Amino acid sequence: MTREYDVAVLGGGLMGAAIGYGMARLGRRTTILDEGDLAFRASRGNFSLVWVQSKGMGMPAYSAWTRRSAAAWPEFAAALKQESAVDCALDQPGGFTLLLSEAEMERRAAFLARLHAQPGFETYPYEMWDRARVRQVFPGIGPDVVGASYCPLDGHLNALRAFRASHLAFAIRGGDYFPDHPVETMEALPGGGFRIATSKGAFTAAKVVLAAGTGNARLGPMLGLAAPVRPQRGQALVTEKASPFLTHPVVTLRQTDEGGIMMGDSQEEAGFDTSLGLGVLAVMARRAARMFPEIGRLNVVRTWSALRVMTKDGFPIYQQSEAAPGAFLCNCHSGVTLAAAHALLLAPMIDAGALDEALLGAFTTRRFDVPAAA
């Protein structure tokens, strides 16, 4: 038996769940086809920031897209809570990048100035704070902290709850989720739409959304879409629960809604290797303890690694296939920050059959076609 849908989303991570939910709330009969828990899923290992600071060096459109998603998160979180009864613990009090030397302060200030000076960049509020001002927010900073950059648009949440809530809300809206259904082949049908063969049955859909992370590298060419993506390992650790003392997220550490202190800052080119390295974890923990000595007195209770989905330049890919219209390629490594945009902004574009050129025109793979000599 072949199951028929309006939209098939390939990939059950947070990106796929957010897009699937967005399509289902538009009234489209939608399915999510997923490899299952054996997939290299960044959604269960990410750092859970909703972050605007630093985004867009070399591509101002990325900063603008990120800002729109951060602004949409309150609506998205409220909708998920209303439909699924799961609270994502969204908190957007503003975020900090703490700096441990005068040289770091100078580099950070220069970077943010260059970022905002790019032609076409939509500037947003940020400030450089000295140590005295930082201590007003974080009385427990260590002696090595000389200052920070601050952006009022930043925040964080409980990404595992957001992942769960997105899937629940998708199901409540009538969406069908098929785990353990890795896609084997796909083809565009002569009269329009697509046929998808999985290891456990066939599906047809009027539209297909490729949101399978690094799996898009294999799936994309089936529908005329190149997906130049690779895995990048990130390691993280979390401490035992502590009394609240981090009122705002810091780009490399944050106190979760459950009380633990989460640390993460590594970017490793290790292929699909998800092993852990005590050296990397120790460096992150040591820097965190320099920022907040209290952290050095806490026990680490868990460590893990996950694979980011990285493109050649680190920016997202959003593109409709020219060879097979109705097939959309979606890749990014900021799946938490951009989840609200994927559900509330991207899904309606896919439903309309065209991506907004003003918002997403910069994100096609055509940017990689420029000759190296140029």
Rank of each mutant, 00 (worst) to 15 (best):
Ala39Asp: 01
Ala85Gln: 14
Cys151Met: 08
Ser101Met: 04
Glu104Phe: 06
Ser334Thr: 14
His333Met: 13
Leu100Ile: 02
Gly193Leu: 07
Leu10Gly: 05
Arg366Pro: 00
Arg254Phe: 05
Ala61Ile: 10
Gly353Asn: 11
Gln235Val: 10
Gly142Asn: 10
Ala17Met: 04
Arg173His: 13
Thr239Pro: 13
Pro93Ser: 11
Met15Pro: 06
Lys81Trp: 06
Cys88Met: 02
Thr252Phe: 02
Leu307Asn: 03
Ala374Ile: 10
Val146His: 02
Gly147Thr: 02
Lys241Arg: 15
Ala285Gln: 12
Leu80Met: 08
Leu26Phe: 01
Asp369Met: 12
Ala205Thr: 07
Leu338Gln: 14
Leu90Lys: 15
Gln118Asp: 08
Asp273Cys: 00
Phe315Ala: 08
Ala8Ser: 13
Thr364Met: 01
Leu99Gly: 02
Thr2Asn: 12
Met59His: 07
Leu160Asn: 08
Met105His: 02
Gln267Val: 09
Gln235Ile: 10
Ser43Val: 04
Ser305Glu: 14
Gly260Lys: 07
Asp87Ala: 03
Asp6Phe: 05
Leu90Thr: 01
Leu307Met: 07
Ala285Ser: 13
Ala212Asn: 04
Phe121Gly: 11
Ile196Glu: 03
Leu210Gly: 05
Met284Cys: 13
Pro190Ser: 06
Gln267Trp: 09
Arg41Trp: 01
Arg67Ala: 11
Pro74Asn: 03
Leu346Arg: 09
Ile295Gln: 08
Thr247Val: 06
Ala79Trp: 06
Gly11His: 02
Leu100Asn: 15
Met222Cys: 04
Ala103Ile: 00
Val146Pro: 02
His181Leu: 00
Ala212Arg: 12
Gly220Tyr: 02
Val137Thr: 14
Asp180Leu: 12
Arg133His: 11
Ser43Pro: 09
Thr364Arg: 13
Arg367Asn: 12
Gly279Trp: 01
Ala162Cys: 15
Ala217Val: 04
Ala42Trp: 03
Gly314Ser: 05
Asp176Ser: 15
Ala306Gly: 05
Ala188Thr: 03
Ala42Tyr: 04
Asn46Val: 01
Arg44Phe: 13
Phe96Ile: 04
Gly260His: 09
Gln320Gly: 05
Pro139Ala: 03
Tyr62Cys: 12
Gly155Ile: 00
Ala8Lys: 08
Ser101Gln: 11
Gly326Asp: 08
Ser266Arg: 00
Leu338Pro: 05
Arg218Trp: 04
